[in-house]
């Protein structure tokens, strides 16, 4: 696997990992699961304050393509997550994680989508702000979107219960 040392993706991931460990954003941790595979990361994200996600710590995996940073990684929550922009299988649906070019949902501007300027840190920060402010226009989880729009109280309850489950309580 020595040959891959030269690859842009690996070098950049190593740089980002170094930056994230030396200067981590508040509450967020992320890094490769094993040293052998730098293309699969695990991340822990805190639930933002003043939201039903408050107090929770959510785990997710980030899977990087070989042509990272030209293509975005895929982020998937590995804990139960009830959120309008997270699919039932945990995959996060935010615009900066969508590759540029073809717009599958036909509502995003090209400027909102992935570009090499983004980074793991920015993705994780975006996800934290996504937790605080769901975008109900792009409902990945229709049920959650509907509940968030129509019955916020119930939504908060469900999320709180979920947060507790995510913590294993």
């Amino acid at each position: 696997m020595n040959r891959r040392i030269g690859s842009t993706a690996l070098k950049r991931l190593m740089t980002e990992y170094k930056e994230l460990t030396t200067n981590p954003p508040e509450g967020i941790t992320a890094g490769p699961i094993t040293e052998d595979d730098f293309f699969t990361w695990e991340a822990l994200i805190p639930g933002p304050d003043d939201t039903p996600y408050e107090g929770g710590v959510f785990s997710a995996t980030l899977t990087f393509p070989k042509d990272y940073p030209l293509s975005p990684p895929v982020m998937k929550f590995t804990c139960p997550m009830f959120h309008p922009n997270v699919y039932a299988d945990g995959t996060v649906c935010i615009s900066i994680l969508h590759p540029p070019g073809d717009d599958p949902n036909m509502y995003e501007h090209a400027s909102e989508r992935w570009s090499p300027v983004q980074s793991v840190e920015k993705i994780l920060l975006s996800v934290v702000s996504m937790l605080a402010e769901p975008n109900d226009e792009s409902g990945a989880n229709v049920e959650a979107s509907k509940m968030w729009r129509e019955d916020r109280k119930k939504f908060d309850e469900v999320v709180r219960a979920n947060t507790l489950r995510a913590l294993g309580l």
Binding site: T8, R12, P69, L70, P116, S119
Partner: peptide, 8 residues
Amino acid sequence: RVCIICRE
């Protein structure tokens, strides 16, 4: 001086 693509 950092290339935003490869961060080098």
